[in-house]
């Protein structure tokens, strides 16, 4: 899959899911792209480098999200 096509597809899908989810496992992204993990990794790494995606880590598990989405360190389940 071409990079631009992959980027568009991923951003579209992740944006659709934003209401319920802001962080995704690597396998979720690979499934969206419909690529084998090793091929998907190349595309996803490039998206991280380009700032389309960013890493999130708990220390034991890593996830991916779009920058600025989701509730970050500040608050979860909080009334505004």
């Amino acid at each position: 899959m071409e990079y631009e096509e992959a980027k568009q597809k991923l951003v579209e899908e992740l944006t659709k899911k934003l209401k319920s989810k802001s962080k995704f496992y690597f396998n979720d992204l690979a499934n969206i792209l419909g690529e084998k993990p090793r091929d998907a990794k190349k595309l996803i790494n490039r998206m991280v480098t380009d700032g389309v995606l960013e890493y999130w880590s708990s220390g034991s598990t890593s996830m991916y999200g779009m920058p600025g989405t989701g509730k970050q360190a500040a608050a979860e389940h909080e009334e505004k």
Partner: peptide, 20 residues
């Protein structure tokens, strides 16, 4: 302590564990 975060160094997805 709060769990995890997006902090890291450029190009690396590991090696840094965010704690607040």
């Amino acid at each position: 302590w709060k769990h995890g975060g997006i902090v890291g160094v450029f190009g690396y997805g590991g090696g840094v564990i965010g704690r607040y």
